[in-house]
């Protein structure tokens, strides 16, 4: 099924909560919802682009040097995103900082290139890239919503307040790495709990 290639990345094989890939940017950037959105969009562009290009050239890439070839393709897309963002969204570019060029070594993108795009057709690879990056974006934004709400007491996306301040003494720890680990752990535990209950029925 074609639709299955799209939805599996969002739910059944969500890169963050099931494959547990690409956790480094998730831990680092999910302190604020707008950072997470920016990171999600970058990953979307790079993943879809690299999946399509690698899928097109899959028969031309010698298997001995396939990883360097994938990296070259991915790095080109990351450079495009980096330069575009530097030009049009300099503030977000600054906040994402080193994690923007580090998308090159993001496990999801290389993982999808190696495991999916280098074997499947162009259209399927495109659907897979879209599904996976939507799954990634949902995960990272979900974590960022929890962390920003608990660590600042409000949620504001690009200076526009979504949830007004509800507590005067928010928890500083949620901006720190332990907060990210805790949030991911709790969400994963809830998903697993739900799945176990479903299987038990």
């Amino acid at each position: 099924m074609k639709l299955d290639e799209l939805t599996k990345g969002v739910f059944k094989q969500n890169p963050i909560f099931y494959l547990m890939l690409g956790l480094c940017p998730v831990l680092a950037v999910s302190t604020r919802v707008d950072n997470a959105l920016g990171m999600g969009l970058c990953v979307f562009f790079v993943l879809v682009g690299s999946n399509v290009i690698i899928s097109i050239f899959k028969h031309r890439i010698p298997s001995q040097v396939r990883i360097p070839c994938f990296i070259v393709v991915i790095a080109s897309f990351v450079t495009i995103v980096d330069l575009l963002m530097h030009g049009y969204a300099p503030e977000l570019h600054e906040r994402l900082g080193i994690y923007l060029p580090l998308i090159v070594v993001n496990c999801i993108i290389l993982g999808r290139a190696e495991a999916f795009a280098s074997r499947k057709s162009v259209f399927h690879s495109f659907l897979d890239g879209v599904g996976m990056s939507i799954g990634f974006m949902l995960g990272i934004v979900g974590i960022a919503i929890c962390r920003e709400a608990l660590s600042t007491g409000k949620i504001a996306i690009f200076d526009c307040t979504i949830v007004p301040t509800f507590t005067q003494s928010p928890s500083v720890m949620m901006t720190l790495p332990p907060g990210a680990f805790l949030t991911i752990g709790i969400i994963m535990a809830l998903i697993n709990y739900k799945n176990i209950r479903k299987e038990g029925r």
Binding site: S169, S171, V172, M173, M174, L176, P178
Partner: peptide
């Protein structure tokens, strides 16, 4: 440790 990291002032 959790409380110290979360609310250092209090």
């Amino acid at each position: 440790a959790f409380l110290t990291a979360s609310w250092p002032v209090a």
